[in-house]
Design a protein around this nucleic acid. Structure first.
Lengths: 213, 213
DNA sequence: CTGGATCCTGCCCGATACTG
DNA sequence: CAGTATCGGGCAGGATCCAG
């Protein structure tokens, strides 16, 4: 399990030894959404080699970050309490990296779990607390998410459902979240396509989910 | 400069592409303390191959995270504003990794910059704001630091100086910071050796710098 | 079919030597 | 002091194979 060490005795080097190798933090990110099976993890991490996934899972397990849990005849991987403490790290990295996003490359996809964590990154609880409960059904590429905001709490689940506003959007949704694109213009330019419900609720969405550029 | 990408369009994957490679975040960590020359960075990162350091510096520069700055005939590397925004990430990683520290391995060292960032990680501004201004001169291995706390602000600089308390400590200092070791016992067991000043100020130090286990 | 393990290939990392 | 050049080894990456 021991990744090559950095020859230094410090908190950050220790962290890098535990989760610093390629793919490790992305596995943690997906597990922050919920327990996942081996195949689900592989599907959520495009083109991760199967042996690398297996190796990372073993290392993360040996480090006490994740554990294997039998769930009714199938095995799922889930975070330990210590692994769950990585959430601030993942959110901070996500917020920082979000600002460096530009046009997506051809092969880049959006997965439900990655989008869920991006939404958690951009979520502003204090703003949300002052708004009425709202449910959004959003489709980003192939990822369909049901987003419920209520009383400063955020809940994101996969799939469709009853919502005050249903919309589909491409990667340019990031410009809405960063404030570079006004909600009305997002709709009029086709960046966001309203499928059902009240389109003006997109303004509420944009104030609830925001990362300053 | 493009690190191998992850085939995914999300904030976290973007961050991993920019600073996810080995050594990158440690370079950022040291530059968070202050601008550093090439040789200083190499000295602060034990056993980093010279070519890897050169490659990382170029990549970080291309990503807009650091810049080369000529300073009176010598070249130093410093963070750009965007690079400085990585501070929350580094602190979060440091706090998380700190809890996983155990006994140091033989070859592990403590550098002034790594210790400075560890102290920043453990610093509790709210607690410090309620305490009188205090200066500590601390020696951790070969790293000598002058730690000044005043009005909820922390300032760490290299070298010795006038201080209310001067002490030397080994890696077991982490047990003081995590609260597993009482200040009096730290002194009586020799984990912390008081060199000058009032030993009872170590209690104040322990309440100012704390990471819960 | 899911959950892996086992090859091979190639590239990046690591160590050292070398240069302006 | 600030890098570049070179080379060997070890992970990463992709495909294939095996077990329940």
């Amino acid at each position: 399990m021991a990744a090559r060490d950095y020859g230094q005795y410090s908190g950050i080097t220790r962290a890098m030894e535990l989760v610093g190798e390629r793919w490790a933090l992305l596995i943690v990110r997906d597990l922050l959404v919920g327990p996942r099976r081996y195949g689900e993890l592989g599907a959520g991490l495009p083109r991760i080699p199967s042996n690398i996934l297996a190796a990372r899972l073993k290392e993360l397990q040996a480090a006490g970050i994740i554990r294997r849990a039998p769930r009714s005849r199938v095995i799922v991987y889930e975070l330990t309490p210590y692994g769950r403490e990585l959430e601030p790290v993942v959110l901070a990295l996500g917020a920082w990296g979000f600002k460096a996003l530009d046009e997506p490359r051809e092969e880049q996809i959006i997965t439900p779990d990655s989008m869920t964590m991006d939404l958690r990154t951009a979520f502003r609880p204090l703003v949300a607390a002052g708004l009425p409960a709202t449910a959004y059904a959003a489709r980003f590429g192939v990822a369909e998410l049901l987003i419920r905001v209520e009383g400063g709490e955020l809940d994101v689940s996969r799939g469709d459902g009853e919502a005050d506003l249903a919309f589909a959007a491409g990667p340019d949704i990031r410009r809405l979240i960063s404030g570079q694109l006004a909600p009305e213009r997002a709709i009029s330019t086709g960046v966001v396509e309203v499928l059902r419900g009240r389109g003006e609720l997109l303004t509420r969405f944009a104030s609830t989910f925001h990362i300053a550029a």
